[in-house]
Design a binder for these strands. Structure first.
Lengths: 201, 201, 201, 201
DNA sequence: CATGAATGAGACTTCATTCAT
DNA sequence: TATGAATGAAGTCTCATTCAT
């Protein structure tokens, strides 16, 4: 008789953690909340993870590496810089669309949490900024973007603008429906790139 | 003999709290750290403040109300919208220039800390976003800005872009000298407004 | 010009303490509550009293010495034992009638508070029990009361019975009007003495 | 090899708490004192009980419910009212005999602590008074007790008399040996009932 | 006499982590 | 793997008391 496929406890715990972190925040929740949400015993969390922190680290790394890969891949494409930035913005927004809880957790607990996980993962976070900066820099070199703007700064505000949008969605400050996502992406890219592009007068 | 001017203990404690919060983060520091930094006894913090939280609230409100007032005042001026946004960006960046520790604390512990003080102060934070949105909206009405962009979204990314810059300075991701501040302000306004302004083709 | 009669601050504070202790209990109130109630400054309480405890001690001793004096005086009267006990019961109940807050405080915080003031004032409390026991003992010697009952035990339950009545009034378990006081005194004396008196069969 | 019978930690902690509360008083002892006395770690107290208060509540309820059950059971018996009251007095005195520490704690910290646990448990305490009052009231209806005495008042002083005896034992005011318990019970019942019973002249 | 700012010891409670089964 | 009892460090807040003016 075939054995039932083994339940992936590790996955089960990670998924539960996302829900709990999103609902209560990392610090406000106890390890037992995660275990309860996952429907497993208290100590099992420690069987699969070294600590509560490591659960968060795992969640972040898992997702963030996808973003880094996406930026890298986009950068290699043979398309105009505006489309590259559009693809990056799209990827980030789609990440939220696809799993809002996870993105909420990553933004709230990591990328905007400068005193805790934000510090730990600074190198990885910076790699994303650098990736965007490279796109801008290359665009300047090719003459597509005006070259009197520091690419690293531009990268900051491009990313900051998008993250602020996600934050606003997360906290219900602006409507978050399918249409809003599409319009927002189009608008932020249009505006920011509109400002970055070289004027052809 | 003239009496020595009375020391403002309350101020002394608030100022110490800024330094300690900036250095260690709100959660990582103990009330005794604040007292030590202020050079006063433990209990005195509780003589002037109801709780550790209230110290933070006080710091935030004190500073944020200045920002809200500034936005309101700027909006009333009879100047082009781009200059209005430039003034707002300038005020925020100057706030950092003037007291980097305080701005670090406010950004890290409040405006980007959605699960703690960010939630408590959401209404006040939102008032700033709304103030910026109004500037954009009025600019659209007057024909200065293109009107196919949602002012509330534009407000988000304008503010998000600036806050990201501040974060980057706070964490040493980009150089933070006098020149950098000026250039950054000019660039972000130039770029974002450049994208927002109506094209006169 | 005649000086205004000096306010008796000490008295003012003691009276305020009675109200505050009655309302909140000794441990639940702070020294500042007493000062506020008395309308004086915080530190003044410490000008007149060595400590918060001493305020309570003062209140207790002031009142309890009256009870001790009353028992002694009653015992000296040339009246039947039942009337002596009636006079004692009457004095205690009248004390409550006259100043319910003070009696509430004394009972709740001292005579029934075996772990705090009850221990400190045990000697004085015991003197009251002894006084009652002496009345019983003398009555047994004169043949008025049956002599097969230990006077010290009888004293305990006579006093215990009355104190329980006061407690019940204090906490609203039984109605506390003028009529109730009179009836209760008559009944408790009638019953307890009825049981103590020698049967003349 | 047979597993050792599991230690009932909860019981262990409750028993330790009785000893510590009896020795030092509820407020004067720290949770760590309980843990030390029980020989367990600090946090384990909080594993089994929500708070220090709850430990006390548990102790009280556990014991008081036995008293309530006993009163109810006694009342149902087909015996003369004097024997009923005798049984109730006997139960209370036996409770002390059986576990003096526990009864000390219950009396000192609950039934006579009107400002703390006494208030919380007033309803349960009152149920005992009511049970005794019912015995008196029924006795009056059957003609066994004189009917010019309020049963609720009689209940107060019956209970008050017994509790005062226990207090006196607890604090060493009167000798507490086996003989004393028996004599005291007989005497208090004899006297109080003697006073309550209808005279057959 | 009077004020109230200043002091600091002390206790409860939380919760991440460990470990015996 | 899986369980959950057991551990204990750490931090906030209270409040009686002191003291300078």
């Amino acid at each position: 008789m075939a054995k039932a496929p083994p339940v992936d406890r590790r996955r089960q715990i990670l998924d539960a953690a996302v829900r709990v972190f999103a609902r209560q925040g990392f610090h406000a929740c106890r390890v037992s909340d995660i275990a309860d949400e996952a429907g497993v015993a208290y100590g099992l969390v420690y069987h699969y993870f070294k600590s509560k922190d490591q659960v968060m680290n795992e969640l972040f790394t898992e997702r963030w590496s996808l973003l880094l890969a996406a930026i890298e891949e986009v950068d290699k494409r043979d398309i105009p810089p505006r489309e590259k930035l559009d693809a990056v913005a799209g990827f980030i927004i789609d990440s939220y669309r696809h799993d809002p809880d996870l993105m909420k957790v990553i933004i709230v607990e990591v990328t905007r949490a400068a005193n805790s996980f934000g510090r730990t993962h600074m190198p990885e976070i910076k790699r994303a900024y650098d990736g965007i900066a490279k796109i801008v820099s290359d665009a300047q070199a090719s003459g597509a973007f005006r070259d009197d703007i520091d690419p690293e700064l531009a990268s900051m505000w491009f990313y900051g603008a998008i993250e602020q949008l996600l934050s606003a969605w997360v906290f219900g400050l602006i409507p978050a429906d399918e249409d809003a996502f599409e319009r927002a992406r189009a608008m932020v890219v249009e505006t920011v790139c509109g400002g970055l592009e070289a004027r052809r007068d």
